[in-house]
Design a binder for these strands. Structure first.
Lengths: 142, 142
DNA sequence: TATTGTTATACTCTATAACTATA
DNA sequence: TATAGTTATAGAGTATAACAATA
């Protein structure tokens, strides 16, 4: 009975840590912090109509989001525009430069990930990646 | 092309967060902090011959481990005994009480996990859990 | 001199609560 | 009065370096 598996939470945490380490040199080469990248990724599907919404979607809170947006906007990677309909809101959207930087980061990360999964056989790998995506999406929706 | 999957790191991180949330009420009911539990789990396979070794295995560092060990030892869940061979070292081992508390936490966590995976079909689930374990173990060994 | 366990210090990150501007 | 965005403050968590005991 000593051959028990680890808790799912522990395994997820170790793997998250490993991937963060693997992404670090890539993000550094593009001069973005991890959370900068997370925000860019979140914006990829489309502009966020409010910053609070963006905060929730990216897993930060609205106060910690501010310096990130300041930094990225200063570099011309995104734009904050007041919403004419409700001028309290600021719509956040990627610029072309932001989209390009994101694409470059992503392809490097995909390579790193492929290397990481290289020992799995193709069927296993496909199942694993698909289930992982499905479970994570379910969690994100809550 | 907008139907891209998320980065593995992001998915792992969201899932880790979700499992930590799911474990919280269980650990609270047993009056242990998350890192207390991690240390108990690490000790389950056998005593740690030094605290630094235990720190590395549990993913903390040796200084942050101290208050955890103090707490758990005070509750009689583990024991620190000086190593006669090298009296600088302190061997850390679970007590019976520690092992019992651990077993109780674990079975509750396994129920929570089963509930979390309930929508997967059995084959998928088996593959997913096995691959997850294998990948995480590979990462832990480094 | 080097290492184990420990303590102390400084630093970063995070959460909370105020503030402003709009509604 | 309530909400979006922002700023400021306090608290928790983390990393680093110093310390005592042993080798």
């Amino acid at each position: 009975m000593s051959e028990q598996r680890h808790d799912l939470g522990a395994s997820f945490a170790w793997l998250a840590r490993a991937m963060i380490k693997g992404e670090a040199p890539i993000l550094q080469a593009h001069d973005v912090e991890m959370w900068d990248y997370v925000v860019l990724v979140t914006l990829e599907r489309g502009p966020a109509s409010t910053q609070s919404e963006l905060a929730a979607a990216s897993g930060r809170d609205k106060t910690r989001l501010i310096p990130i947006l300041d930094r990225l906007e200063a570099r011309g990677l995104l734009r904050r525009t007041p919403d004419p309909a409700d001028r309290r809101n600021r719509v956040v959207a990627l610029t072309t430069a932001g989209r390009e930087l994101l694409a470059s980061c992503r392809s490097a990360i995909r390579e790193m990930e492929a290397e990481f999964l290289v020992d799995l056989d193709p069927d296993e790998r496909a199942t694993f990646v698909a289930v992982l995506e499905r479970l994570a999406d379910a969690v994100r929706e809550r």
